[in-house]
Design a binder for these strands. Sequence first.
DNA 1: GCACCAAAAGTTATCTTATCACATTCGGGT
DNA 2: ACCCGAATGTGATAAGATAACTTTTGGTGC
Lengths: 166, 166
Amino acid sequence: MPQSSNPIAATFAPHDHQECAHRALDEAAARLAEQGARLTPVRRRTLEILLESHRALGAYEVLDRLAAEGFGRQPPVAYRALEFLVSHGMVHRLQRLNAFTACLHPGDDHHPAFLICRSCDKVAEAAGVPIRDSLTEIAGRGGFQVERATIEAVGLCATCAAGGAE
Amino acid sequence: MPQSSNPIAATFAPHDHQECAHRALDEAAARLAEQGARLTPVRRRTLEILLESHRALGAYEVLDRLAAEGFGRQPPVAYRALEFLVSHGMVHRLQRLNAFTACLHPGDDHHPAFLICRSCDKVAEAAGVPIRDSLTEIAGRGGFQVERATIEAVGLCATCAAGGAE
DNA sequence: GCACCAAAAGTTATCTTATCACATTCGGGT
DNA sequence: ACCCGAATGTGATAAGATAACTTTTGGTGC
């Protein structure tokens, strides 16, 4: 992730993907090692594929890439790797898109809000805490205990808005 | 909807569905008439089916019921009716569940947050405005313009929590 | 009443997304 | 070298959604 005053803007701005993806991969590997979880070749490659774009990819898109690289070509190959990565907080699932996106800062707030740009299709993670607090508060007044929340916004990122990609 | 200090609690509490569903249907019919939209038999019945439970139903569940009542038995029958109702604000689509739920107060805040009880599967609508404001604010700081937001929480409603349905 | 047109409903086929069940392989511990 | 459980591979199929085309329906002008 490049230098920037704001992580959301930084995600959408042009920047050195190689570097930010590499950093995230190292961090993921370290965290998984701590947990005693195995980052096997398929799982590692799956994470890399997601990190190579900030986009969300469908399971079958991931599968195609894996198959092209010599891994199995049946859906469970991709779904299993993705499920593993999601359950260890390395990847998030986007409900609106039926798609998956790599987490750029695993371990921090693992329940972010997602900002999906409808023009460039990149996905940023925004601080979920204040939003969840608001939701929890409103739900709580009705006696509802929130356990998990999905917060996903579709809109236009600053880069696309500026670039006339409207 | 029964008398209650809180609409969320009211949704989950036992109450006279017939009455609250009937009210919502009348309101929907009136609103559609205003808009010059046609509430045809399939559409009307689809809305009734959703109103009969506060649960979210999958398109194929709705389709089965429609087919059993003499309507077509092909997926587009259900999808078209649901799409019509969604686009007119009478029904909401829940991304987490790939399912649809009737709107209990069409016209009010058409972008509510959804509270889904994992025990009884009922769905309540909570005021979405404060939550969306929070999201819009955070996103805006990163230059992201929110256009549409999905806010869905899974948890436990007061009725199930009290009833030991844990 | 009737001819016309657009909207709605019906039907077939197909596509995308996701999971199940079972066989095989891999890797660490003894 | 052997064992065991985890991970992977494979075929089949379930579940969710849409495309393309035909037929029916309902309102409008005549």
